[in-house]
Every structure is written in C-alpha cells, then in structure tokens.
Amino acid sequence: MVRPPLTVEERERGRRLGALLRAARGTRSPAEVAAASGVSLEALRKIESGRVPTPAFFTVTALAHALGMPLDRLADELTGTADGTALTA
C-alpha cells in the first residue's frame, strides 16, 4: 500500500512544529534535547528542519516532555487555537 502524498497544509504544519520545537529548545543543544527525550539526534534535526512533517505521536510527546512543553499548548500553537482562531485541517 502506497501512502498518499502529504498536502501543502500538512507540510506547513510540519514546518511549524519544527520551528516551535526549535524555539522551545532555546539555548540547549540539539544533542542535549535528543538525549533527554530518547529521540535520536538525526530524527530531532529532521523534525526541526521540517524534513519529517508528520513525526510519530510518541516522538512528539517525548520531545515536548523533554522541553517542558505541554502537549495541549503545542497542539494549540499548531492548530491556531492559541489565539482563538482555528485553522482548517
């Protein structure tokens, strides 16, 4: 079975996810966050750069936990609900 190509919106959401995680990382090195989360450094780099626009749920959960970012806040940021305007999926 072939996976359908990602939509423009899905790729853009992946870029936003990467930017949010990179911003939350702050001054910590990617290696430090990778070690704290149990996610490989290469996977973290790919997610932060948007090359993996749809990472696995447990990968995102591990990164959010290591960064001290609640999942609901991350979801709000990605869907646009943090400012009261929901994006369409």
Score class of each variant (00 low, 15 high):
residue 78 L to I: 09
residue 69 M to R: 12
residue 7 T to R: 11
residue 26 G to M: 08
residue 61 T to N: 11
residue 3 R to C: 04
residue 53 P to I: 00
residue 34 A to I: 09
residue 64 A to Y: 04
residue 35 A to H: 08
residue 58 F to Q: 08
residue 70 P to Q: 05
residue 22 R to C: 11
residue 82 A to V: 10
residue 68 G to A: 04
residue 6 L to Y: 09
residue 38 G to A: 07
residue 79 T to H: 02
residue 26 G to F: 07
residue 51 R to C: 00
residue 82 A to N: 14
residue 27 T to W: 06
residue 12 E to I: 09
residue 44 L to R: 03
residue 61 T to Y: 12
residue 7 T to N: 11
residue 40 S to G: 12
residue 54 T to C: 13
residue 48 E to W: 04
residue 85 T to K: 10
residue 46 K to L: 14
residue 8 V to D: 13
residue 54 T to D: 10
residue 8 V to M: 03
residue 18 G to H: 02
residue 77 E to A: 15
residue 71 L to C: 06
residue 54 T to W: 09
residue 3 R to I: 12
residue 63 L to E: 07
residue 87 L to G: 07
residue 21 L to K: 01
residue 55 P to R: 05
residue 68 G to F: 04
residue 26 G to E: 12
residue 83 D to P: 00
residue 69 M to I: 09
residue 72 D to K: 14
residue 29 S to V: 03
residue 47 I to P: 05
residue 55 P to D: 11
residue 73 R to K: 10
residue 83 D to G: 12
residue 77 E to P: 02
residue 22 R to G: 00
residue 48 E to T: 03
residue 77 E to K: 07
residue 4 P to G: 02
residue 35 A to R: 08
residue 43 A to C: 02
residue 53 P to H: 01
residue 1 M to N: 10
residue 47 I to V: 15
residue 60 V to M: 05
residue 10 E to Q: 15
residue 26 G to Q: 13
residue 74 L to N: 09
residue 85 T to Q: 08
residue 25 R to C: 06
residue 3 R to Q: 12
residue 1 M to V: 12
residue 83 D to W: 02
residue 48 E to V: 03
residue 20 L to A: 13
residue 49 S to D: 12
residue 35 A to Q: 07
residue 25 R to E: 08
residue 70 P to A: 06
residue 13 R to F: 05
residue 28 R to L: 10
residue 19 A to K: 09
residue 34 A to S: 14
residue 70 P to C: 07
residue 79 T to S: 11
residue 89 A to W: 14
residue 60 V to K: 03
residue 12 E to S: 13
residue 40 S to T: 09
residue 33 V to P: 01
residue 74 L to F: 05
residue 20 L to S: 05
residue 77 E to N: 13
residue 33 V to W: 00
residue 27 T to I: 09
residue 4 P to F: 02
residue 75 A to S: 15
residue 41 L to E: 13
residue 26 G to A: 14
residue 54 T to M: 07
residue 10 E to T: 06
residue 62 A to I: 00
residue 71 L to H: 13
residue 17 L to V: 06
residue 66 A to I: 06
residue 78 L to H: 02
residue 40 S to R: 01
